[in-house]
Design a protein around this nucleic acid. Structure first.
Lengths: 353, 353
DNA sequence: ACCGGCCATGTTTACGTAAACAAGGTCCGG
DNA sequence: CCGGACCTTGTTTACGTAAACATGGCCGGT
């Protein structure tokens, strides 16, 4: 409650820009040189214990904090990783970001978030242009949309880039969920239950993830010699899933649907409910993502669990390897998925029902 | 990593240490002084057009990018805002962060994300300790949990702080959704439909938002002279809502429930569905947040819409005012809410059912 | 005891930028 | 035709830190 508890060297003239405490101030108080303060500050060995204590005491008394700008200028590194994201609205992106941030923090790195508000080519290029002058040592690009070829983008400083959820050829390391295997598990699960085939409501065609899941769906059906029903498209939203569901509900031989994500699965379930098609008795639904709510859908959704935390962890790992000039995992790092079976899937209705 | 300080590995065969292009390099190429390059770089007036063109050409040719560390050191400002968040898992936090990031970007500020992984007192204090050396001009604290009094926290550099969704007394400016009015609208809507009273499933007691919503719920009922049913608690999760719903479904005179957020409302709906209580015929449900999925719940959820984008905008506004030493909006800035009526609410069942 | 080496600490310097000051040129009025 | 205001460009300096180099004291071996 006291606005100024311990009156310090703070200028009494009001809110005047009080100069920060620097190493020189600490050095003067401790009776040593600035270099010794630097050694203590960086944990450098070769400072005798008594001196170290004096310096630490002086630091504490003055409230000394290292100036990261000066450090960055001197060392040529910012201990900061830039993260470029198109939106935080999707569960996947925000969970990945959270994992990136916390793992980076563990390694002593801060995260600078670079939002690309408008997912247009110009918006992206503008962000990359400004990137060069950003105080970052490396960049993680979370690009779920292939608006432009990542390989054509100008390099950020130092050329340290890791790409998530995208396709960068072999130019940059890529970390991604194993979309293909996840979709395979989903479709296989439905086939194993006895469904003749599986319908698919895919995400938008500009999404890499949507394309991979759709391709896997097609290939599993083809491999099993099953007919491939017409593909339905949504935009990841529950509303789009609902619209697709209204159409699918009228397809008499549609008994199993693999939705591109959980939100569209939610819309599907509502459409089937509205049309009187009971899930899973009449029709089975599988989602993708395993968002926290999906266990509380009506009925609880069988879905493919994505390990966003692991994706974030591997991103940071790869990024730090690049920064340290260690060999990064080349090519693409795939994070495995896991099918979570709940209550939205069942064998198809018997023919003599 | 070995802590040995010998690590001066300057491998001559390896790739050259590609030193960054500085103003001096540009100056040399353009045949001017470094100061002139600086003037062009900062858009300073007083450089004749022909000279400016030469400098710009040289910059372009060399791929010059200003070194933000040197700028920060010189100017004493980083053009960066730190954002402290406890979790990105909640819709509200990630949407708020996104709005903060995009508005800050519009003003030429970057966002540094500071995650507090463990919401313990030590975790928080640790984050604040490290804060002092972070390259930020101001800090926005999104603290939905009152683990410790914000007022007791040591000041970040410059003392520029804006708090979201919390209670900082009058020490720092606060921006928050108008929780009280939102909850009032929800409860009033149910009373207006003819319900005798409204039950409430609140968020955890350590959440400011949960407490405000519960208090408003109580006060509206009291003002209307209605009985106040026992309070149920959840942890914001759909699963907690489900558990509360199983209990409430057995309360014969429970015809209307106000859930502390949409996810708990989702759980409530599933519990009522499992218990054969039809929403909204037998029982009405109102949520809070208006997450994108809530329009696709079964039935579509009536809920209180929060304008997270506006919260983020006001945060940045207030923060920049502080940085610029302009008078900030004092006290608390409340962002209004809006009731979105969908299909989970209806008049109570008639007595002669 | 002497010398060489090692250890703790001090001094110098450079990182890239931009404010402050300096210098040279132009132009206009008197 | 000269003085001074103004305009463009150059030079100096400082921001805070840490590597590189310098210094001086202590200790052990011969």
């Amino acid at each position: 409650m006291t606005p100024e508890a311990s009156g310090e060297v703070e200028s009494p003239g009001g809110r005047r820009r009080h100069r920060r405490v620097s190493m020189v101030d600490v050095a003067r108080l401790a009776g040593v040189s600035a270099q010794t303060v630097s050694r203590v500050s960086t944990g450098h060995p070769g400072v005798v214990a008594t001196t170290r204590q004096q310096v630490l005491a002086a630091m504490h008394q003055l409230g000394y904090r290292p100036n990261s700008a000066a450090r960055a200028l001197k060392n040529g590194e910012f201990r900061t990783i830039g993260v470029i994201m198109f939106t935080l609205a999707s569960t996947g992106n925000s969970r990945t970001l959270e994992a990136i941030a916390s793992h980076a923090a563990n390694e002593g790195y801060a995260i600078t978030l670079i939002p690309v508000a408008t997912p247009t080519r110009d918006g992206v290029l503008g962000a990359f242009t400004r990137l060069g002058e950003l105080a970052v040592d490396a960049v993680i690009i979370v690009m779920e949309v292939h608006l432009l070829d990542v390989a054509t983008i100008t390099l950020p400083p130092g050329g340290h880039v890791v790409v998530v959820d995208s396709d960068a050829g072999d130019r940059y390391p890529v970390v991604d969920t194993d979309q293909t295997d996840g979709a395979r598990q989903a479709v296989q699960h439905l086939l194993d239950l006895g469904h003749r085939t599986v319908w698919h409501v895919a995400g938008p065609p500009e999404s890499f993830a949507a394309e991979r899941r759709a391709a896997a769906w097609r290939s599993v059906l083809a491999a099993a010699g099953r007919p491939v029903p017409p593909l339905h498209r949504g935009d990841w939203s529950a509303e789009a899933g609902y619209r697709a569901g209204l159409v699918l509900a009228d397809e008499p031989d549609c008994t199993a649907v693999f939705a591109g994500n959980d939100q569209m699965a939610l819309g599907l379930q509502r459409a089937f409910h509205d049309r009187g098609r009971v899930v899973p008795r009449d029709i089975s639904v599988v989602g993708f993502d395993d968002i926290p709510d999906s266990g509380s859908f009506i009925p609880p959704l069988t879905t493919v669990h994505q390990d966003f935390a692991e994706v974030g962890r591997r991103c940071v790992l790869n990024t730090l390897r690049q920064i340290r000039n260690e060999p990064a995992e080349p090519g693409i790092t795939l994070v495995p998925t896991r099918l979570v079976v709940r209550r939205s899937t069942a064998p198809p209705p018997g023919p003599g029902a």
